[in-house]
């Protein structure tokens, strides 16, 4: 099956028995790609998986799946943000919960990063292939019905990426002038409930004051502007990306199409409003 002759020879030297029992797995890190391909009898799947992931559609599935997970993250993140409207204690207690198990936080962060990298990596390789697929451009190619969002996925994605980087440096890593935020601490009032059950707080002890941090952060107009642009780009990206998930994974019919397009727009709008509400509310003085 398209195996280089050399690899076949290497294989010939392996004891037959070993092959048949599939114990060759032990040897596989040492033997390289040729072996993975050749031991097809036991593990066709390595080759098929590789084919799948390398194919145009395989990478689109990855885009869709990772995109969907990222949407899930964004929705949870947004719901968390909205706790700001329930007062400082609610938000700070929620933040305390997230940080209460450091290992879980880091596993989560690593996973999220991996998902994001796969999403971006697939997106960029696919986009580069798309460029190459038309070396001689049209002098004129009309756009008949494609939405602005669908045409600007790469751009909106890159803006979101840059914004996420800014956001992490700003509020998570708190670099440069934002180091001040780390010093903001205050006690959290002990309110019985699920938060207290999962991550109890001790009365009198000081915890990072996230509420105060966002009030500080979003009192600066240019920062709010950056956030609004970032969140806007995210909304644009999602309004196409979310309905794309259904098409790419094959769950979209002609009849369901308009519904899914509408659903994606509603979701994108909800996320934009939810995400923008906190910085906007701070800037306008509703949250203080």
């Amino acid at each position: 099956m398209g195996v280089p002759r050399g690899a076949r020879d290497t294989l010939g030297k392996l004891p037959e028995k070993l092959l048949r029992r599939g114990k060759h797995l032990l040897a596989f890190p040492l033997r390289g790609r040729g072996l993975i391909f050749q031991t097809a009898r036991g593990f066709v799947f390595m080759k098929t998986l590789w084919q799948l992931l390398r194919s145009s559609l395989g990478r689109k599935y990855l885009m869709a799946a990772t995109g969907l997970l990222l949407v899930g993250f964004v929705v949870v993140h947004m719901l968390g943000n909205l706790k700001a409207f329930s007062g400082a204690d609610a938000l700070n207690h929620y933040a305390h919960l997230l940080k209460s198990r450091a290992w879980a936080l880091w596993v989560f962060r690593a996973g999220l990063l991996a998902i994001a990298l796969v999403h971006v990596g697939c997106g960029i390789t696919l986009a580069l292939e798309n460029r190459r697929a038309r070396p001689q451009p049209y002098v004129r190619l009309k756009t008949i019905q494609a939405s602005v969002a669908s045409l600007s996925m790469l751009g909106s994605g890159l803006v979101v990426g840059a914004f996420v980087l800014f956001h992490v440096l700003h509020l998570t890593v708190q670099v440069g002038g934002f180091q001040e935020y780390a010093k903001l601490k205050s006690p959290i009032a002990d309110a019985p409930g699920i938060l207290q059950a999962l991550a109890p707080v001790e009365p009198g002890r000081s915890y990072p004051d996230v509420y105060e941090m966002i009030v500080h952060a979003f009192s600066v107009p240019w920062i709010v502007l950056v956030y609004l642009v970032g969140v806007g780009a995210l909304g644009l990206h999602l309004s196409h990306g979310f309905q794309s998930v259904f098409q790419t994974l094959g769950w979209r019919s002609d009849a369901a199409g308009p519904f899914l397009t509408g659903l994606a727009r509603v979701l994108a709008l909800a996320i934009v409003l939810g995400m923008a509400s906190v910085p906007a509310a701070v800037l306008c003085g509703f949250l203080r």
């Binding site: 145009s56 696919l126 292939e129 190459r132 697929a133 494609a146 669908s150 794309s244 790419t248």
Partner: peptide, 10 residues
């Protein structure tokens, strides 16, 4: 060497 669909439906 065809490109990849980005679901624009043109």
């Amino acid at each position: 060497g065809f490109g990849n669909c980005t679901n624009q439906y043109e």
